[in-house]
Nucleic acid binder design. Structure first.
Length: 895
RNA sequence: GGGCGAAUAGCUCAGUUGGUUAGAGCGUUGCGCUUACAUCGCAAAGGUCGCAGGUUCGAAUCCUGCUUCGCCCACCA
């Protein structure tokens, strides 16, 4: 074994071994309890970033832990077709050839998309493998797989038949670059700097009205270009300032249209001038008002957000160009009163960041309220739990205010909607804006003729479904649902497999997709299979750079996990992430932070190297389990076994409670600072008949406990151990159980006091400026301690780098003390007493202050009466001990 | 506008029903090649737990208010 751990030597080798031997695969196994997780399917266009690394490491830790604990542990992998994102990639490819997708047509374009998918679609999967994830790759799914597509169609049909899907003309978020509708969740608001423009709309007095009217009325707007589509002005009904508007006509500048004047509570009299221009086809609010007041809808834009023929002279300009042109014209006509700087919040496409254009168009929607109902109940009743629990509120808050979901997309890459139209029926009905259901046939396959009129002139809906409309079925569609309508392609798509593994146990995700995905999966699970999709939801933080900025390519602040894997190893990456992933907090990363993992891996490597060399050739094969009968254990042996037991217990319960950080911390602390720093060091001076076995035993168990975190290095070392192994791989080895130990607590205390003695000696020596290995006189406070010191003298001397004397005659001594031992050294050897004196004085002061506080407490009758007896006893005991300590420290000062 | 969260050592964070002298990692300072490991070991410095009240015998922990920061939601022209 080399003196340094080299991950490159091990990682690929072991991953291949695991995968080829089928260790990742999970199948229905009645002898075992199931444990399952479905992966949040990465976009097929994705490349591994730190967020994936974090998310998947957490899942792998849980999956590996449960597998070792004896569960049939399934991790279902797959990728998401990511409609817009993937289409964009191939569109860019086409653009390089000077082509648009329309040039080659839908069919050819989709062909190219599949070619792309076949070539690059497994990139992210291969990268995940480098991370060490133990997914059941035989089950790899893709949301556009044939079988999966069937599930999507079925889901659509079922909802449609229940009346939960409808088509309608509404204002939706339109991305003029992607040329598609987007769901509200896909169009997050961002604040940008803009202006609030004050525009004068000329007034004309109507014949017969008495009041005097001004020449114009001023309207404030942030989007002057939409005025081309204005059909009314609105004021608040309570606003007395504008009552006169009833008596006049408002003329829309530049266009000349006469506008209605309406009153609506939605108008805020304090904002701007208190008069709102109403553009029903280009603003969500205006749309609602227009519906209420029966206004005319005028669409002034094309799908690429250029002005259409409704825009008169501005036709052909894009929306921002039109704004400039209109402002210029208004200014020329003296109708632009002023402008004020104003922060506008506007939706932006989550795929390409283009500013959203609210657009009136015919789209498909899912009625969410009925679906949300049971999904709310499931969480309220605790059937699904969030970790950390605070997300429950966020979830409920969103669900209770849920809006209908726009699921149609005007793109080509995706599940084309299972909707067909009968041309005859539609023409006969002269389909109007309000009657979208005429001539609609919803069906899995294209019907040969119309069920109503018998016509065979039937065509399919052009739109595809929102990608999330397929992802929300993920926890059951991946198993091959629906089972009724098809025969399984293979044994892993059998209904029994689904029934065994579903509901899944934990869903691990970042908070960003709580609404996009998690909430919707809960609704889908309950709606389509009548059962929650997962029992627990673990929400981890977002990965950020060291200054707290989200990592993104455009900011240039990404830390590439693959680079970390190449430089430091996957285990280092995994461990470092888990150690920082706190309790769902965002994590702030810099490259240096990954050194913790590398250093720890190296520590494991070297500790193992030491042990393996030490026991080399001693035994042919060590037994797997500990039999201590008739064996003599040293104090250190007992202590490490005692600590080991505590470790096993806490690791197990931490992992069961999804407290991965605590688990990581615990196993790190034990291995490095207890096992290596103390037990291994002591073992250098302590032999004993079973020392070798104990070292191997603890190492074996630590490798098991560490395996979920650091699968590669642990497997590599474990394979070198000469113990009796129950499986060919550590992956499938059993998770450690606590030992039945009969260890007297006093012995642990005695060990700890020796440990404290060593620490005091080291500090004492340093304080006094003694570098050489000189003799110290150590006097135990009682006889039994005296015996203990005698027995452990060797390692105490060794670890404290002094000669421990039990008898000595010092003419002049300096002394210090621990609770149980007094320590003396010949004054002539002391080089620097001052530092030591100062520290002792400081310590005395600190303890005296503490004592005072405790004394006050104990003289307080309410404390004595009301605090539990246990607490009072403890306080008294503590005070006694501290006062003893102070006495001793004071004595030292006089020497 | 509504909701959620955070504020603890120079930095990043633990601190689970209120009860040892508030912890760790990194960083800093000093010492050290001792039978694995300098990607190491040892020792040390460093904190009125954001502010102000309140509850309590006792508050980093519970309550109220305030300040600062972050996130999410919303039909803020």
């Amino acid at each position: 074994m080399q003196t340094r751990y080299n991950p490159a030597d091990t990682e690929e080798k072991w991953y291949k071994f695991w995968e080829e031997k089928g260790f990742f695969n999970a199948r229905k196994n009645p002898a075992k309890k199931p444990f399952s997780i479905v992966i949040p399917p990465p976009n097929v266009t994705g490349i591994l970033h730190m967020g994936h690394a974090l998310n998947n490491t957490i899942q792998d830790v849980l999956i590996r832990f449960k597998r070792m604990r004896g569960y049939e542990s399934l991790w279902m992998p797959g990728t998401d077709h990511a409609g817009i994102a993937t289409q964009n990639v191939v569109e860019r490819q086409l653009a390089k050839e000077g082509l648009k997708k329309e040039d080659i047509g839908r069919e050819k374009f989709l062909e190219r998309l599949w070619v792309w998918k076949e070539e690059y679609g497994s990139t992210i999967i291969n990268q995940l493998k480098k991370l060490g994830v133990s997914c059941d790759w035989q089950r790899l799914r893709f949301t556009l797989d044939e079988r999966y597509s069937l599930a999507v169609k079925q889901a659509f049909i079922r909802l449609f038949n229940k009346g939960l899907i409808y088509k309608g003309n509404y204002i939706i978020n339109w991305c003029p670059r992607c040329k598609t509708a987007l769901a509200d969740e896909e169009a997050p608001y961002k604040e940008i700097d803009g202006w609030l423009y004050y525009i004068r709309y000329p007034l004309k007095k109507t014949p017969g009205s008495k009041s005097s009217v001004p020449d114009y009325i001023t309207v404030a707007t942030t989007r002057p270009e939409t005025m081309l589509g204005d059909t009314a002005l609105a004021v608040n009904p309570e606003d007395v300032r504008y009552k006169f508007l009833k008596d006049c006509q408002v003329i829309l500048p530049l266009v000349g249209r006469v506008l209605k004047v309406i009153e609506d509570e939605l108008v805020e009299p304090e904002f701007g001038t208190g008069v709102v221009k109403v553009t029903p086809a280009h603003d969500k609010n205006d749309f609602l008002i227009a519906k209420k007041h029966n206004l005319e809808f005028i669409n002034i834009m094309n799908e690429d957000a250029t002005i259409n023929e409704q825009g008169l002279e501005f036709k052909g300009l894009d929306r921002f160009g039109a704004r400039e042109a209109i402002l210029k014209r208004l200014e020329e006509e003296g109708l632009l009163e002023k402008k004020e700087p104003y922060r506008i919040s506007a939706g932006h496409c989550y795929r390409c960041n283009t500013m959203i254009e609210p657009r009136l168009s015919a789209q498909w929607f899912v009625r969410m309220k009925p679906l949300a109902k049971q999904a709310i109940r499931a969480v309220e009743e605790g059937k699904i739990e969030f970790y950390p629990g605070r997300w429950k509120k966020v979830y409920l808050n969103w669900m209770e205010n849920i809006q209908d979901w726009c699921i149609s997309r005007q793109i080509w890459w995706g599940h084309r909607m299972p909707v067909y139209y009968c041309r005859e029926c539609r023409e006969r009905h002269k389909v109007s804006e309000s009657d979208y259901n005429a001539g609609i046939i919803v069906s899995e396959h294209q019907p040969s003729k119309c069920g109503v009129c018998g016509s065979s002139d039937i065509y399919q809906e052009e739109d595809v479904l929102d990608t999330w409309f397929s992802s929300w079925l993920w926890p059951f569609a991946t198993f091959g649902w629906p089972f009724e309508s098809q025969t399984p392609d293979s044994e892993i798509e059998k209904k029994e497999e689904f029934e065994y593994f579903y509901p899944t146990d934990v869903l691990v995700t970042a908070s960003e997709i709580l609404f996009f995905w998690v909430a919707r999966m809960i609704m889908a699970g309950l709606e389509f299979v009548g059962e929650i999709p997962f029992k627990r939801v673990l929400i981890h933080g977002t990965v950020r750079d060291i200054r707290g900025k989200k990592m993104s390519k455009s900011l240039g602040n990404v830390i590439d996990p693959l680079e970390i894997i190449n430089e430091l190893g996957a285990d280092s990456l995994r461990f470092s992430l888990m150690l920082q992933a706190g309790s769902g907090q965002d994590i702030y990363l810099s490259k240096e932070k990954f050194l913790v993992g590398r250093n720890f891996a190296n520590k494991i490597w070297n500790a193992s190297r030491y042990i393996l060399e030490r026991v080399k050739g001693k035994e042919k094969e060590y037994p797997a389990e500990l039999n201590l009968e008739g064996k003599i254990l040293t104090l250190a042996d007992k202590w490490i076994l005692y600590e080991y037991n505590r470790l096993v217990e806490s690791c197990t319960s931490f992992l069961e409670e999804l407290r991965i950080y605590d688990y990581t911390q615990a196993v790190y602390e034990f291995f490095w600072h207890k096992f290596c720093d103390w037990y291994l060091e002591i073992s250098k001076k302590e032999s004993g008949e079973i020392k070798g076995f104990l070292l191997v035993f603890i190492l074996d168990k630590c490798l098991r406990l560490l395996h979920p975190l650091m699968p590669f290095i642990t497997e590599d070392i474990w394979q070198r151990l000469n113990i009796k192994k129950e499986t060919p791989t550590l992956m499938k080895a059993s998770w450690p159980e606590t030992l039945e130990l009969t260890i007297d607590k006093r012995e642990i205390k005695n060990f700890l006091s020796l440990k404290e003695l060593v620490i005091s000696l080291r500090a004492f020596k340093k304080d006094l400026g003694i570098k050489e290995r000189v003799s110290f006189l150590v006097e135990p406070r009682n006889d039994s301690l005296s015996k203990i010191l005698e027995e452990n003298l060797q390692w105490v001397s060794f670890l404290s780098r002094i000669e421990v004397c039990r008898e000595g005659s010092y003419p002049e001594v300096v002394s210090t003390a621990t609770i149980d031992y007094d320590i003396f050294v010949d004054k002539s050897l002391v080089k620097d007493l001052e530092l030591h004196q100062k520290r002792i004085e400081a310590k005395i002061k600190e303890l005296a202050e503490f004592m005072q506080r405790e004394e006050v407490k104990l003289s307080n009758s309410s404390f004595l009466q009301q605090a539990s007896r246990e607490v009072v006893e403890k306080t008294k005991q503590r005070l006694k001990e501290v006062s003893k300590e102070v006495e001793r420290l004071k004595r030292i000062k006089w020497l």
